[in-house]
Amino acid sequence: MTNSFASNEGTEPDSSFFSHWLDNVTKTQEVQPHWEPLLSMPSPRLTQGLRYNYNQQSFPNSSKLTNYGMGKGLELILGENVEVQIGIPAYLDRETPKAATSGWADETFLSRFRFIAANEENGNYIVSGSFGLSMPTGSDQFSSHNTILTPTFAAGKGWGTRQYGINIQSSLSASVPNNNLSTTGIPLSWIFALQAHILQNFWPEIEANYTHWCKGAYDGREQLVLTYGINFGRFDINNRKKITFGIGYQEPRWANFSTFSRGWISTVKLSF
């Protein structure tokens, strides 16, 4: 009897802690829109789960870059308006007509703070800010060799219900290296996205990502990339667990400069 009581006493606090934390996560997500994450643009929403992205880009000289992971990873909601992300370093594979190179990208972290939000019944909008950190931990041929800080401001507005509707989302960010500014430069990125919700689990989207480089090798150059895609989700697995997956096609448009010629992006996310 004594051993049984001691065992229960030891495990009950852990069960209570995680149950309380997950209840708070549910309450936190309930007061914001219930849109699916976009394929390319970081979500302004607070999200929780494990996400993996796959990206492949082609270049005019028959070269190809495959990105396994694309900086995504574990997303955790720690408070009423706070989320943190711990990236899983992406594995990169570059193929050219002359050689093939593989290696790891840099480690990334992100924190997000939600300023204001309302769910579909109370306004359907959200405004948030985030702060990203990239550390030069990757392979020599793929690392930026700099610590990069990326502040981002993001917002979104939707129309409709939790079952059907449309929304627009946008973000503005700058990636600032701590060193080698004349080589790395500062890319300023503005993303605008239109997402629809149809047939319960279908989320078609189009994203426009405009980048302007200050300083560095691309100083003064501009690029506009369009992403056409669709997400499918969230499908119930059990209890809190849900799965989402999506795919999209990317291409630079309306510019004389681009860092690639075309690409594919796909994602899968386990929410909990």
Results as ranks from 00 to 15, higher is better:
residue 179 N to P: 00
residue 222 E to T: 10
residue 120 E to I: 03
residue 240 R to H: 12
residue 194 L to P: 00
residue 21 W to C: 00
residue 237 I to A: 09
residue 228 Y to N: 06
residue 60 P to G: 11
residue 223 Q to D: 05
residue 66 T to C: 08
residue 243 I to T: 08
residue 183 T to K: 13
residue 198 I to K: 09
residue 205 E to H: 08
residue 263 G to N: 08
residue 25 V to I: 15
residue 195 Q to D: 01
residue 94 R to C: 00
residue 74 L to S: 03
residue 242 K to V: 07
residue 145 H to L: 03
residue 104 W to V: 10
residue 242 K to F: 10
residue 124 N to I: 04
residue 132 G to R: 05
residue 265 I to E: 15
residue 74 L to C: 01
residue 183 T to W: 02
residue 234 R to S: 13
residue 142 F to V: 03
residue 269 K to H: 09
residue 164 Y to Q: 15
residue 241 K to R: 10
residue 4 S to V: 11
residue 38 L to W: 00
residue 174 A to N: 06
residue 8 N to E: 13
residue 226 L to R: 04
residue 198 I to D: 02
residue 30 E to C: 07
residue 215 K to D: 14
residue 84 V to S: 06
residue 12 E to C: 00
residue 181 L to T: 10
residue 250 Q to N: 12
residue 124 N to P: 00
residue 46 L to M: 06
residue 32 Q to D: 04
residue 249 Y to A: 13
residue 209 N to R: 13
residue 271 S to W: 03
residue 60 P to L: 10
residue 43 S to L: 04
residue 147 T to M: 09
residue 254 W to A: 13
residue 43 S to R: 03
residue 199 L to D: 11
residue 225 V to F: 05
residue 41 M to H: 01
residue 5 F to T: 09
residue 195 Q to A: 10
residue 236 D to V: 11
residue 157 K to W: 13
residue 139 S to C: 04
residue 191 I to W: 06
residue 152 T to R: 14
residue 124 N to S: 05
residue 26 T to Y: 10
residue 103 G to C: 05
residue 137 T to F: 00
residue 254 W to Y: 12
residue 238 N to Q: 12
residue 183 T to E: 15
residue 241 K to Q: 08
residue 165 G to V: 01
residue 36 E to Q: 12
residue 250 Q to W: 00
residue 240 R to N: 13
residue 59 F to L: 13
residue 22 L to K: 08
